[in-house]
Design a binder for these strands. Sequence first.
DNA 1: CAATAATTGAGGTACGTAAATCATAAAATG
DNA 2: CATTTTATGATTTACGTACCTCAATTATTG
Lengths: 340, 340
Amino acid sequence: MRPTVHDIAATAGVSLATVDRVLNGRPGVRQTTVDKVEAAVSLLGYVRDVTAANLARKRVYPLVFIVPGGPNSFLRNLTAEITAAAQRSSIERTVIRIETVPPFDPAALVRVLESIDPQTVSGVGLVATDTDDVTAAVNRLVEQGVPVVTLVSDLPGSQRVHYCGIDNIAAGRTAASLIGRFCTGRPGKVLVVAGSMKLSDHSERASGFAAVLEAEFPELGVIGPVETNDDADTVRQRVGMALETGPEIVAIYNLGAGNRGLIDALAQHGHRNFAVVAHEVTPHSRQALADGVFDAIINQDCGHEVRSAIRVLKARADGLDPLTAQERIRIDVFLRDNLP
Amino acid sequence: MRPTVHDIAATAGVSLATVDRVLNGRPGVRQTTVDKVEAAVSLLGYVRDVTAANLARKRVYPLVFIVPGGPNSFLRNLTAEITAAAQRSSIERTVIRIETVPPFDPAALVRVLESIDPQTVSGVGLVATDTDDVTAAVNRLVEQGVPVVTLVSDLPGSQRVHYCGIDNIAAGRTAASLIGRFCTGRPGKVLVVAGSMKLSDHSERASGFAAVLEAEFPELGVIGPVETNDDADTVRQRVGMALETGPEIVAIYNLGAGNRGLIDALAQHGHRNFAVVAHEVTPHSRQALADGVFDAIINQDCGHEVRSAIRVLKARADGLDPLTAQERIRIDVFLRDNLP
DNA sequence: CAATAATTGAGGTACGTAAATCATAAAATG
DNA sequence: CATTTTATGATTTACGTACCTCAATTATTG
């Protein structure tokens, strides 16, 4: 049987009340007594029964998630996963509030971050735009004792306690490997389409992609990245233009959203056997992969990301270190045949 | 606040004891009273607080896992994951016993299955050999009320309550897609290496692979599958022989274990730019991928499989339906650049 | 109708922890 | 040394559920 607080009290030769004071960092215990209790804890290998503790203290974790609005399928899916997590609230003792902000609007993000009350909120998750004002607002929250995690897109210079998302440099490198091999020696250009270089996930993908292409597939050059603000119509126009004016294009890497626009552009153009790699499984991209319009999709499981974010925030709210090694989000590579 | 048994008792107009009798299926309650209580439950949306319930009943789940022994890296890793889960036992209220059996020995597997006491064991997980005697032994256990799950390799004709592993037909198809694309039009033969066609995972991969290759890449033919019993030395010999006598080989798909032997054979042969796809990330296969000897690795995360198996067995032991949709194990595709 | 059986209520204890109160003991202060 | 402060002990209640006992009520049977 695993040891309980009673066992600790007995072996340390102190009362239950003192054990409780030590374990929960309450004042009024001499250092020598603290040491005695901690010795007993490590001797017996005591671990607090978190479920019993939560039961006793009626703990809840009020969390806030900030997600950009707009039609982006991936972000809507992310929001749906947060909502699903909110519905498990009663089981997980979380109280989740979702704040929607206009996309590509750092100022709005900052306003929401500043409206958060450190007294009543025990953790914040956000999809960040990598700008100085957002970084500052995040740092301010963290300094007030509110753990903040970034989702999908990181804020590398900030004090955020964790990033819940894929390694985007590796994702870009993977895309380059795939495109390079799918083209096998055929020289030409790769059109790179991005949403915004202000999003660190996009800029990281672009740099990883360019690095591998240059090093391993010198016969392929890069056109772009073309910025589209993740708008499908813009993607359609820019890709259409590029395909007409650049006959040497043999592959396309869309590292941002707006896959619908890419699919439309390719349909208009009459397929010229491009190698096409895109990001995120959505209804449209899934269909394109099944139809052979896309060759591969690089995906991040946003359900995993949300659940990981919640675990990390809860752990930090309790002053624990989350097992960071177990919270790594994998880069999924989907071909037509392993699409779930 | 979420409703408690007290709330149920109050709205149903019965005592706490009666609510308890209904919720836990204890006898001695009139049907009309049962209905009243159940009406209150669904009216208030009551969900039992599992943590409090487990605390009160001091529930433990004694589980048995049966894994083949031998040097197979993947299976050793699987065993390590089960051991890791066993170390979380006190938290998860499981008591896990690991039984090691000789590999490729159905009779030994049957003996262990028959030694299991349905009274004291609340669930069993095993890596199955797909033979009739094993199927029969599994069915006997299930009929005695012990839920059984298969890990890694399924037992399709049996009564096992769940299969914790990847879709191996899809895995084979994915391998074919990758090899087909990596060869882009270059005609030739693909050498297929397997452990044993008695393992349903291996035979399913082989059939998925052959199907896609025939349908989509008619310029590529199949040699094999060569059976090796997952022994690295045998793999080395058989691959070496094949490469010498079959100069038209352009790609290799090892759908079984023994990657070490494959790597050795390729090294001896002096690389002739084969497209090589193998299964499972192990220290050797990881190195081979990094070195460019392998082009892709198809992987299943055995940590996920073990955790999923435990969740399913616990749920079934409590008479609950596990959320099968959430227990699907993904097919990971790793290239050099997205290897974790 | 009485005897018996089936059903329900009332109340308690337990699980492991949190958190509070109040009394007592020890240490520090003047 | 008396007084104040600080530490500690002893005890209790609570969280939501399980499970037990015993008494009381209601149905069912002969």
